[in-house]
């Protein structure tokens, strides 16, 4: 078991965004979280990446408890993520965005940075090459030195994935990676997720595009009104009566 979450709950004022959700995520699989708008998917993802502190419940990655640590500790433990609303560093080039993602592996002390100690130049070259290779691998080779604010939306979506991969996460949380993309671009994301899974990275996918979800995931979790409604393999979930009701209303037969 890569990630285990016990009874996660989080309220915003009077709204119980997530209530008593338990998760067990097997390593090496693609897990999808689906549900109608407002079901609590992004709130759950924000708790799994340490951005929101759960009101109650616990989170374990392998045997390490993360629960209420700050988000950079979640990242250090091996959880990476992308964002539903792009969080690109628009003050940097595409390459620098991905190089920033290498922080956990290419960090340096303040003194070494200020005086540019000899080892640093070599480490920087290594970092740059690794970042360039990652951009190539997500199909952004031609954007290496582009200012990120000059890149099209579809490319930025993949840039965020490349940046998250630069930190070499064990678990990668993707928050609506295909939102706003056309069919071709969605196909590229589909292929990318499969490649990640093949490389042994465990993926959690929050996504509204059901075709994508059904194609790439081995495990689907359905949320509704902040609670876990159903879970299982894609086929079982898509035939589940409660799931159909939640999506289409009670009268759907």
């Amino acid at each position: 078991m890569l990630l285990r979450a016990e009874n996660l709950s989080r309220r915003f004022g009077g709204v119980a965004a997530v209530q008593e959700v338990c998760l067990e995520l097997e390593a090496g699989a693609v897990h999808s979280i689906i549900g109608p708008n407002g079901a609590g998917k992004t709130t759950l993802l924000n708790m799994l990446s340490g951005i929101y502190r759960p009101d109650s419940g616990r989170i374990f990655l392998e045997e390490t408890e993360l629960s209420s640590l700050p988000s950079h500790e979640f990242a250090a433990a091996g959880i990476g993520r992308t964002f539903q609303n792009l969080q690109i560093f628009f003050n940097m080039s595409a390459l620098e965005n991905v190089m920033a993602g290498r922080w956990l592996h290419e960090r340096c002390s303040l003194g070494a940075a200020l005086l540019r100690l000899p080892g640093l130049a070599r480490a920087e070259r290594r970092c740059r090459d690794a970042a360039a290779a990652l951009l190539e691998s997500v199909g952004l080779g031609r954007w290496l030195d582009a200012d990120s604010d000059a890149m099209p939306y579809g490319a930025l979506k993949r840039l965020e994935i490349a940046r998250a991969l630069a930190a070499q996460p064990k678990l990668l949380l993707l928050d609506e990676p295909a939102a706003g993309l056309n069919a071709t671009e969605t196909g590229e994301i589909d292929a990318l997720i499969r490649t990640l899974a093949a490389r042994g990275i465990t993926v959690v996918l929050v996504e509204h595009n059901m075709k994508l979800v059904m194609e790439v995931s081995q495990h689907v979790i359905v949320l509704d009104y902040g609670r876990k409604l159903a879970e299982g393999d894609p086929r079982a979930v898509s035939e589940d009566r409660r799931v159909i009701e939640a999506y289409l209303g009670t009268d759907a037969q």
Binding site: G50, P70, H72, A75, G80, I88, A164, A166
Partner: peptide, 13 residues
């Protein structure tokens, strides 16, 4: 400076 959320998600304190 670009995004504190994203920086945190990359392990930057």
């Amino acid at each position: 400076h670009g995004s504190e959320f994203a920086a945190g998600a990359l392990g930057i304190d």
